[in-house]
């Protein structure tokens, strides 16, 4: 009797273990695929910009619940939710600067609408938004680089003269005209995308990329001598070694032809 019951228990235990193993393995494979898909989804294409206050992409994908309330409260056709089949994680809000940039509303309705804080509610001044960073990607086609006074990206910038300035330099082609080079300053650029949107070329010479993609970073140990001098009021290393000045070079000399011999 007891052995009978013991046998039955053993059988049901075996059954239980087998069922558990089956479910765990089956669901585990499913989970692996899902996890890989999730990792893949973290790579945001560079043209897709997140709404203001979104923070780093990995954090955003953990905080956004894909409800679309930011899209609903965006008064412009800027924000949209990614559909299945697009490169952006499905259901998350984004905009493409060249199609419709962020208009930088003072009251930032998209951030106010976000129920989870995926768009950081601490962002109350839209000038502090960092949706991306404008980069003048193509000096070969930018009209200002060709010596013209296009200036459109500079004119439309909501943070004009801070985020984009025109830096004057000489025109090396004509040797008599000036060039006004649109120059982006990352400490002021919000990444709204108006410059990219309004670039008059068929394909924009200035584009907004996610900050992580657009911005370099100095090594932590770098010290800029002139800034240190300014801060300290004197040279950090007094009487720094002065390297000997070079002698005048022979005509035609260059790196490829040292000494200028024929």
């Amino acid at each position: 009797m007891t052995t009978e019951r013991a046998k039955k228990t053993a059988r049901s235990r075996r059954q239980f273990l087998a069922d558990t193993a089956k479910a765990a393995c089956g669901v585990g494979v499913f989970g692996l695929v899902l996890g890989l898909a999730a990792r893949q989804a973290q790579s945001l294409p560079p043209v897709a910009l997140r709404p203001p206050g979104a923070g780093a992409e990995a954090d955003f994908l953990g905080a956004c619940i894909r409800c679309g309330l930011c899209v609903r409260d965006c008064p412009y056709p800027t924000l949209r939710l990614s559909n299945l089949g697009e490169d952006v994680a499905v259901g998350t809000p984004y905009f493409v600067a060249r199609e419709y940039p962020c208009e930088m509303c003072d009251d930032i309705p998209c951030v106010a609408a976000c129920p989870t804080g995926a768009l950081d509610p601490k962002l109350t001044n839209i000038d502090n938004a960092r949706m991306g960073l404008a980069v003048l990607v193509d000096e070969e086609t930018c009209l200002n680089f060709l010596g013209l006074r296009c200036d459109v990206c500079y004119r439309v910038c909501p943070v004009i003269d801070k985020a984009i300035t025109l830096e004057r330099s000489g025109n090396q082609r004509t040797h008599k005209h000036a060039m006004f080079i649109p120059t982006v300053h990352s400490e002021h650029c919000t990444g709204c995308g108006k410059c990219e949107r309004s670039c008059v070329l068929d394909k924009a010479a200035i584009r907004v990329f996610p900050v992580a993609l657009a911005k370099g970073q100095l090594g932590a140990h770098y010290r800029l001598g002139w800034k240190e001098k300014e801060r300290e009021g004197h040279e950090l290393v007094p009487g720094i070694i002065d390297l000997p000045d070079r002698l005048p070079q022979m005509p035609g000399a260059g790196l490829g032809n040292p000494g200028g011999k024929p």
Binding site: A23, A24, G28, G35, A37, G62, C64, I65, R66, V90
Partner: peptide, 20 residues
């Protein structure tokens, strides 16, 4: 099991993975 899996994947990837 599937429910538990979605939460584990969310925790491991830091992404609301099931919504994909």
């Amino acid at each position: 099991w599937v429910l538990a899996m979605t939460l584990v994947v969310a925790a491991l990837t830091g992404t609301v993975a099931w919504e994909l």
